[in-house]
Design a binder for these strands. Structure first.
Lengths: 206, 206
DNA sequence: AAATATACTGAACATTCGTGCAAAAGTCAA
DNA sequence: TTGACTTTTGCACGAATGTTCAGTATATTT
């Protein structure tokens, strides 16, 4: 599969990947040695330098745990994207501002496409009948306009909400998908209202 | 944004995140101190222990660079996985057999976890009220048993179906989540019936 | 067969790094 | 102000970690 790597290099590289996955930090020489049956730290150094030379990882001398995978070996299959997950949305601040960011979630490109995307966690059941449940993670395209019928993420008086978008002549209706909730009516240009984006997908852990 | 953190803790946490993002490894005490204006390693230790105590990160004593973000503060996805997408399920053949495979979909590990997982596309609206719509991609854990209340993928006379699993004394009820559909009753050991897996998550393009 | 390259071992060695006090400085309530 | 906390400094210590160098065994080349 990696025909240009020796067996030892293979196993070291694979150990580093597993270790990174598990601990979120690179292993020490001794840990690598113990896991791959190299009894001398210098043996590890030898293999690591070999891998570095072949471009599979990079090292910073004199620093502990300073091996990192390169593009070549960090497998991030294409078709996957990392989408920023927005936490609480601070009113006024730009959507993707540092303080709004809660983390990242991986998503398949068939779901989120290739345009700008952000993710947020759903609170409440107001869109239940649209198949959007409490706790779901929504993917949305940032935009300040929307078409009637779109499911939008909107900012209303400092609160983010997800609803069907139904503009009328003089006002905008934000329709829930749950009979136990009432539509929210916004007089155009009246209340502190803003569309943040249009929902394009979701993901749920059951 | 994190009201229970002091300013110092905030800035240290944020530095650790930036550092992780950039170098793929945690910083040392001295690096943290230098970046956040704490001139003693022991000062850093103090702040770090405070953060650890509040649950924002965890430390392993005696190890270098052994701070890691917890769920609470993590910034990068635990990981992404490629899940095999099952197309038509040929009766009799093993689930993951080559001829059943339609491709792969990317999924966030927070949704699919780390165990064996397969994916399949939903056909029909019989689980609509469980928030599972036509066209959704389901993630499921392969298993031949299930507990009452689980949503299962089951093979019934050569057809795969997704339903709530409700075993009774002498028979098994497969309950839809849509009043327009009727429960499917399977006499135990009678019809050609098999559980393929338990649904653990889903993903939808809107 | 001798020379060379590869893939290590083993044992110091030198930094880097986390730990452990003791003490100072800052904070806040009584 | 006093006293009780909290937060930070400073420094020495020892454990953890990468580096260096001298060898060894094995295979490959010449």
């Amino acid at each position: 599969m990696r025909p240009d790597l020796t067996e030892k290099q293979q196993s070291v590289l694979s150990f580093i990947r597993r270790y990174l996955q598990e601990y979120d930090r690179p292993p020490t020489f001794r840990e690598v040695g113990q896991a791959t049956g190299i009894s001398s730290t210098n043996g590890v150094r030898y293999v690591l330098d070999g891998l570095a030379h072949k471009g599979y990882l990079s090292r910073s001398p004199l620093l502990s745990r300073a091996v990192s995978l390169t593009e070549k070996s960090a497998r991030r299959p294409k078709g996957m994207r990392l989408i920023p997950l927005i936490g609480r949305i601070a009113a006024g601040s730009p959507l993707l501002a540092e303080e709004n960011l809660e983390g990242h979630v991986a998503a398949d490109q068939t779901v989120v496409g290739s345009g700008d995307t952000f993710a947020l966690r759903v609170k409440g059941d107001s869109m239940k009948e649209a198949g959007i449940f409490d706790g779901d993670i929504l993917f949305a395209r940032p935009q300040s306009m929307a078409q009637s019928g779109d499911i939008v993420v909107a900012m209303l008086e400092g609160e983010a909400t997800v609803k069907y978008f139904r503009p009328e002549k003089k006002r905008i209706c934000l329709m829930p998908a749950n009979p136990r909730f009432s539509p929210i009516i916004v007089e155009k240009g009246k209340r502190d209202f803003q569309i943040l984006g249009k929902v394009i997908g979701l993901m749920r852990k059951i």
